[in-house]
Nucleic acid binder design. Structure first.
Lengths: 234, 234
DNA sequence: CTTATATGATCGAGTTCCGTTCTGTGACCA
DNA sequence: TGGTCACAGAACGGAACTCGATCATATAAG
């Protein structure tokens, strides 16, 4: 099983948020144009301030067109979220290919780099944080419970890679620990970009260190880990 | 400077979200009744499903009364958030008094216990997570930039306690590291309560371990720390 | 102590804004 | 030329928010 395969598109969780599959090619372009518009709007005004009219206008479409493809407002945001998660996975794979990982740490490093890179370049990337938490707040009758567990899903995939390719023990604990690591990294990276659009380097660096140290507690330190002193200081 | 003083009410960040200060005593009761109602509503339907009418009805007031005290819907949620943060601080102080801390770890431990305890007992406590992130998404023209930095504010206070009472070096790094720790703990504890209303013990325990290990990297391990093996395993 | 008056506090119908639906019109295909 | 796909924007409904009328309380005057 290849790295790319593990993270690939087909294995993604697909919520049925699209109302009508695009028949003509023109439609597919409209669809992505709508998501692009939503992504811009996310950066411009934030999640909640987004109006359907705003999305339609930025996409050069009309209100009706939005509702042709999505059942409601939040479905658009969910679709954007899924596309963003997908692009994140693709970006991780790209990082793998440009600098093939040789240790489990390299895998984590690639994931962090991918996250940071996309946060800087991809409009509306902050939507990553959003839906994960939001799915929980919807609480009771949410149909797509899968979406709420995106982070857990990604962690599971990542754990599989680490087990299959780098000999980490394939136990249930592995998934749990990777999820812990993902959760920590996510929060620290989001914090890094909270006020700084380029991302506060101190938080990014500390994120790498924290994740490394945490996993190294169980799976041994990586030799020649750059810039981190694992020993106890002061 | 006492522990209680460090966390006390007066030093809290006060966003001017209240439209009119209550003159008569009756008003103060109304105000807290509105927040109580909002808190119930948070648990009942989640953030976004909350309507102003819902808050008014639960509080036994009318729509107009809500808008007498708060400029808009989100201001009510922000006020609830601040009150919750305040109660969290008070709870931490209570924990301090019931079992006085003797090491820096005890302080962290109290904070975690306070967080978990309130999540279980205080209605609408999940609002903690919310506004921190949300303040950021509001982005540009937010008048109260202070509110967005609640976490950072709390971390600063906590760092002061650790420095003043437990001899941790009073450097800028301390604040930064405490903020990292708070950020990690926050995300892991929220994750613990994401699907489990009582909080997943595994995540709570791992939160304690992670925070301890991180701070111990800089400030030395705590002797006889319960149940955590600081040495590298496997 | 009673009454007058000002101001705080409350209410809820009315207004506006926004999400969503629906109907009419044009574009592509057989 | 009939039929389906795609689109636009007016129309609808509900929720956020405003505003003037009304009630409650505190202070001042008699």
């Amino acid at each position: 099983m290849s790295l790319a395969g593990l993270f690939d598109v087909d294995s993604a969780v697909t919520g049925q948020q699209v109302r009508a599959e695009p028949i003509q090619r023109r439609s597919a372009e409209r669809l992505s144009a709508l998501l692009d518009a939503a992504a811009e709007a996310v950066d411009a005004v934030g999640f909640d301030r987004i109006t359907t009219a705003m999305i339609a206008e930025r996409a050069g479409a009309s209100i009706g067109t939005v509702y042709r493809y999505y059942p409601d407002r939040v479905a658009v945001l969910q679709a954007l979220h899924e596309r963003t998660v997908q692009r994140f996975r693709e970006r991780v794979v790209e990082e793998f290919e440009s600098s093939p990982p040789t240790t489990w740490w390299d895998v984590v490093d690639c994931a962090v780099s991918a996250f940071v890179g996309l946060y800087r370049s991809e409009p509306g990337f902050r939507i990553m944080q959003f839906a994960d938490r939001e799915g929980a707040t919807l609480g009771e009758g949410t149909p797509s419970d899968d979406v709420a567990r995106e982070t857990g899903f990604f962690a599971t995939r990542l754990a599989m890679v680490l087990a299959a390719r780098f000999g980490l023990p394939d136990e249930p604990e592995l998934i749990f620990r990777v999820e812990i690591a993902v959760e920590m990294a996510d929060s620290l990276l989001c914090r890094a970009f909270l006020h700084d659009p380029l991302g506060d380097e101190r938080f990014i660096a500390e994120c790498r260190r924290v994740v490394h140290d945490y996993l190294a507690t169980f799976y041994g330190p990586v030799v020649a880990f750059p810039g981190v002193d694992v020993s106890v200081a002061v």
